Simulated scan of single mutants.
Amino acid sequence: MSEPDFPESEFADRLERAQRLMAGDNLDALLLTTEPEIRYFSGFRTLFWQSPTRPWFLIVPSSGKPIAVIPEIGAALMARTWIEDIRTFASPAPQNEALPILAGLLKTKARIGLPMSGESQLRLPLNDFQELTHSLAGCELADAAPLIQTLRHIKSEREIALIRQICLIACDAFDAVPQQIHAGMTLKDAFRAFRIDLLRRGADDVPYLVGGAGPDGYGDIISPPDGTHLATGDVFMMDTGATLNGYFCDFDRNFSVGPASEIAARAHATLVRATQAAFETARPGRTFADLFQTMAKVLQDEGGQVGRMGHGLGMQLTETPSIAPFDTTVLEAGMVLTLEPGLTTTEGRMMVHEENIVIREDGAEFLTRPTGPELPMIGL
Rank of each mutant, 00 (worst) to 15 (best):
M1E: 12
S2Y: 04
P7C: 03
S9T: 14
D13W: 14
R17M: 00
R20I: 00
L21P: 04
A23I: 00
D25W: 15
N26V: 00
T34W: 05
P36T: 05
I38C: 05
R45K: 12
T46A: 02
W49I: 03
T53I: 11
W56Q: 11
S62C: 02
A68E: 02
P71I: 01
E72M: 03
G74W: 12
A75K: 15
R80D: 03
T81Q: 01
W82E: 02
I83P: 04
D85C: 07
D85Y: 13
I86A: 03
R87H: 10
F89I: 00
S91M: 06
P94Q: 01
Q95R: 14
L99F: 15
I101A: 07
G104N: 15
L105K: 15
L106S: 07
K107A: 09
L122A: 11
P125N: 00
S135I: 12
G138V: 06
H153R: 14
K155G: 03
S156D: 07
I160A: 12
I163M: 13
Q165Y: 01
I166T: 02
I166A: 01
D172E: 15
D172S: 13
A173Y: 10
D175H: 15
A176L: 12
Q180H: 14
I181H: 11
A183M: 07
G184V: 08
K188W: 08
D189H: 12
D189F: 04
I196P: 00
D197S: 11
G202S: 08
A203H: 06
D204Q: 07
D205K: 09
V210F: 07
V210M: 06
A213Q: 07
D216T: 14
D216P: 15
G217R: 01
I222C: 02
I222L: 09
P225C: 05
D226H: 10
A231G: 06
T232G: 04
G233C: 05
G233R: 00
F236Y: 12
M237P: 01
M237Y: 06
T240E: 08
T240M: 12
G241H: 04
A242Y: 10
Y247M: 13
D250K: 09
P259K: 03
A260Q: 11
S261P: 08
A269E: 14
A274E: 03
Q276S: 09
A277R: 05
A278K: 07
F279L: 04
A282R: 01
G285Q: 03
Q293Y: 12
A296Y: 03
D301T: 08
G303L: 05
L313D: 11
Q316L: 09
L317T: 11
I323V: 14
F326L: 08
F326W: 15
F326G: 03
V330Y: 13
G334R: 10
L337H: 10
L337R: 08
E340K: 13
E340C: 11
L343G: 11
T345G: 04
G348E: 09
M351R: 06
M351T: 01
E355P: 09
E355F: 04
F366H: 12
G372L: 05
I378Y: 10
